[in-house]
Design a protein around this nucleic acid. Sequence first.
DNA 1: TGGGTGACCATAG
DNA 2: ACTATGGCCACCC
Length: 112
Amino acid sequence: MKQHEDFFQMVFDVVRLIPKGRVTNYGAIAKYLGAARSSRMVGWAMNASHAQKKKVPAHRVVNRNGELTGKHHFATPFLMQELLEKEGVVVKNDKIKDFNKYFWDPTKELEL
DNA sequence: TGGGTGACCATAG
DNA sequence: ACTATGGCCACCC
């Protein structure tokens, strides 16, 4: 069992816990899983999220500025925004409006 | 062994 | 709003 596969699963599990209509960023997930792994690794994990049997709501993960930087990795560049808007998140110019309002921080919401 | 890259982040100017 | 840097860490030459 490769270590990075475990890391993938941990990332996917956290992403699946994001409530509908809420969003988070790569850094927050990396921090929640332990700062040892940088946020780049979270993005790397998301790159593999589409291949998962259990679906991962990757559209709820954006960068720290609330920008939809991962949109080009979806089936179509519009899908990410469409999924978000369908959940009530307003997206303007590839950026989430009132990002602070929708932001969901696992280190705070999943306090152990 | 080393360089380039990336769905990132923080700080500085 | 923009670029530039440095850090991050796994991957692929």
